[in-house]
Write a protein that binds this DNA or RNA. Structure first.
Lengths: 145, 145
DNA sequence: GCGAAAAGTTTGACTTTCAAAGTATTTTCT
DNA sequence: AGAAAATACTTTGAAAGTCAAACTTTTCGC
């Protein structure tokens, strides 16, 4: 089997497995009500300060209508605070609540642990080559879109 | 920047929009009506011969109820053929139609391009190292999930 | 001030998903 | 052989996530 085919299969499997693992990691006992989508929205809002809906929606590549619905749910569950900007009354500002901050950090920790566990499996050279390959993959997708 | 942080950021970015980007690659003029989900189902069915619903559902890690709905749509759009097994009349066999085969190959080509874009700038030795690293990671994640 | 533009929300429709109930067929166990 | 259990799949009901388009409120440009 040539390296092209092997890589293709391995990458497809890897992406699926990582997704599955992440979904599972998000729903721990503490954060039963947080979906993967919820977590992505919280990541896009970020831990520092408030962002407006449009910029968060652009980051997530969804419409503001879609984001409104996601944020409705996150506000109801207490993970996100929503308020109107004083400077421009059209603008809606969203930020992580205390509970949202905690959930965000909990998930960041999972990411760090996963990466550490993965890197432990690899030699220094393998780490370096893998990093390079991932950067190239990112560039390929960015350029395609 | 240390490799940990780089990997984390690169992975998060890659995963956040990989579905969107892949979907965009799938929907060309020729295949307007094929969603990313449709393509994943076709990949699981595979280009050779017929598979039963249960094995395809297991591969995709969805329930057979979910798969029935996906396959309904693919049959209606003409990408998949569905028939009852003669040996065991409970079993439903699905396979790619001619049109499905074409769409499948079209998408495989996209994957190949992606892989080539990544491999192009790596030496033979680096390619070998990357393959090894990815195989290790696949094993790691399989064992985790 | 008025019309256009911008920021969000709402609405209606569709897709994807699961759990659970239902149908048809085959296997197992008397 | 015949009843009970298991298997393979479909259907149903409910929820989440998505978009396009219509709508509301506020601001900007002239």
């Amino acid at each position: 089997m040539d390296i092209n085919t092997t890589l293709n299969e391995v990458l497809v499997k890897l992406f699926r497995d990582i997704n599955t693992l992440e979904e599972r990691a998000i729903r721990t006992e503490e954060y039963q009500d947080v979906t993967a989508n919820d977590m992505h929205v919280m990541e896009a809002i970020g831990p520092e300060g408030a962002k407006n809906m449009t910029s968060v929606a652009r980051e997530l590549e969804v419409t503001t209508g879609t984001l409104t619905i996601s944020v409705n749910s996150l506000v109801k569950k207490g993970y996100v605070d929503r308020s109107r900007s004083e400077e421009d009354r059209r603008v809606v500002l969203v930020s992580l609540s205390g509970k949202g901050q905690k959930a965000y950090l909990h998930h960041q920790k999972f990411h760090q642990e996963m990466i550490e566990a993965v890197l432990k499996e690899l030699s220094g050279e393998e780490q370096r080559v893998l990093e390079q390959a991932l950067v190239k993959l990112t560039r390929f997708f960015r350029q395609k879109s």
